[in-house]
Computed example of a mutant assay.
Amino acid sequence: MTAALFPEVVVNGEIIPSAAIAAEAQNHSAPKDKPGIAWRKAAQALTIRALLLQEAQRRGLTAEPEELSPGRVETEEEALIRVLLDQALTITPVTEETVREEWAKNPERYRSAPLWDVSHILCACDPRDAEGRTAAEARANAILEKLDGDAKDFANAARESDCGSKASGGHLGQLGPGDTVPEFEAALRELPEDSISPAPVLSRHGWHIIRLNAIASGQVLPFETVRPKIAEAQEKTAWARASREFVETIAKGAEISGTCLAPI
Rank of each mutant, 00 (worst) to 15 (best):
F6K: 04
E8Y: 10
V11S: 02
I15K: 12
S18L: 05
A20W: 12
A20P: 02
A22M: 15
A25E: 00
A25R: 01
A25S: 02
N27G: 14
A30L: 02
P31W: 14
K32P: 07
K34E: 10
I37D: 01
A38W: 00
W39S: 00
L46A: 13
T47M: 04
T47R: 02
L52W: 01
L52F: 08
A56L: 00
T62Q: 03
A63F: 06
L68N: 08
P70V: 09
P70D: 06
R72L: 08
E74N: 03
E74L: 04
E77N: 14
E78L: 13
A79T: 01
L80C: 06
V83E: 06
L85D: 00
L85T: 02
D86M: 13
Q87N: 14
T92H: 05
P93T: 10
V94R: 00
A104N: 09
K105M: 07
P107V: 05
R111W: 15
S112T: 15
A113K: 15
W116T: 07
V118S: 00
S119N: 07
S119C: 11
I121H: 07
G132D: 02
R133V: 05
A138D: 05
A140I: 13
A140R: 04
A142C: 09
A142K: 08
I143H: 07
D148F: 08
G149C: 05
D150F: 05
A151L: 07
K152P: 06
A155R: 10
A158R: 00
E160P: 11
C163F: 15
G169Q: 02
G169Y: 03
H171K: 11
Q174C: 06
G178L: 02
T180K: 05
F184S: 01
A186S: 12
A187L: 05
A187D: 07
L188V: 09
L188A: 10
L191P: 06
I196G: 00
I196S: 00
I196V: 07
P200Y: 08
S203P: 09
R204C: 11
H205P: 01
G206P: 03
N213M: 09
G218H: 11
Q219N: 14
L221R: 12
P222V: 14
F223A: 12
F223P: 09
F223C: 02
E224W: 12
T225K: 13
R227N: 12
I230S: 11
A231G: 02
E232S: 15
E232I: 08
E235A: 14
E235Y: 11
S243L: 15
T249F: 12
T249K: 12
T249N: 12
K252W: 09
I256W: 01
S257W: 14
G258W: 04
G258T: 05
L261S: 01
A262Y: 08
I264C: 10
